[in-house]
Amino acid sequence: MLTIKNLTAQVDGKKILNGLNLQVKPGEVHAIMGPNGSGKSTLANVLAGRAGYEVTGGEALFEGKNLLELSPDVRAREGLFLAFQYPVEIPGVTNLQFLKAAVDAMRHHRGQTPLDASAFMRLAREKCKGLALNPDFLKRGVNEGFSGGEKKRNEILQMALLEPKLALLDETDSGLDIDALQIAAEGVNAFRSPERAVVLITHYQRLLDYIVPDYVHVLAQGRIIKSGTRELALELEDKGYSWVLEEAKAS
C-alpha cells in the first residue's frame, strides 16, 4: 500500500529525513516511535504534502502511484489521512459544514452521489456517538475552543467519516485522558480491516496495549534505525532509546 524508499526531505534548508525506508501493507498496523525532533511529524507531513516540506530525494508510492507529485487534496481523496499532532482552528466554519464538505469531496472522487443534509447528519451523529462525543460538537466551529483532548477525538471522528485507506495518526494519544484514550483506540480498532492500514506515531507504549501493532519502528535522525514487533516497544519503555542509537552507530 505504501512504499517509501530512501526518502530525504528538508525544511527551511535543514535536512530532516535522511534516507528513510518503510513498507506498509494492507491490513497492517505500524507504530513509529522515536526521540523528540527525530522527524516523525515531518514524515507524516511530507507524505500528506504539506507546504514547506521539500523532498530532495527518494520516492513514496501509494498503491503504486507516485504520492509526491499529487497535490495534498488529491492525496487525501486517494485515501491518505493524517490525524494532526496539533489540529488547527477554523473559526466560523462549523464542524458539520466542514465534515460535509470533506465527505462530499471524497464521495465525488469515488463517483458516489453526495449525501443529502439529513442523511449526513444521521451519519455524523452516529459516528459521534461511537466516540462518546456530544453531537453539539458538530455545531461548533472547527476545533474552535476545543480542549486538547476534544481536538484529538475530532481527528478520529474525521477519520471515521472519511474512511481512508491509510491513516497516519500523529500522537493522537497525547493529551487524551485514560477513558478517552480507550475510546479513541476503539475507534481505531473499529477502523482496522484487511484493506486498510494504520501508521501510529506515538511516544507511549501504553497505546499499543489498546491498538496492537504488527510492527514497531524506531525513527531517529531522519531514518528508521530499528524495526521489530510489539516487544520492541516494551523494551524501549524499559531501556529508553540510547541502546538503539548505539547499536545503529555501531553498524
Binding site: D73, A76, F84, P87, F98, A105, M106, V142
Partner: peptide, 8 residues
C-alpha cells in the same frame, strides 16, 4: 492544509 488534507 487541514482542509486539503480532508480532500477539499
Amino acid at each position: 492544509f487541514l482542509c486539503q488534507q480532508r480532500g477539499i
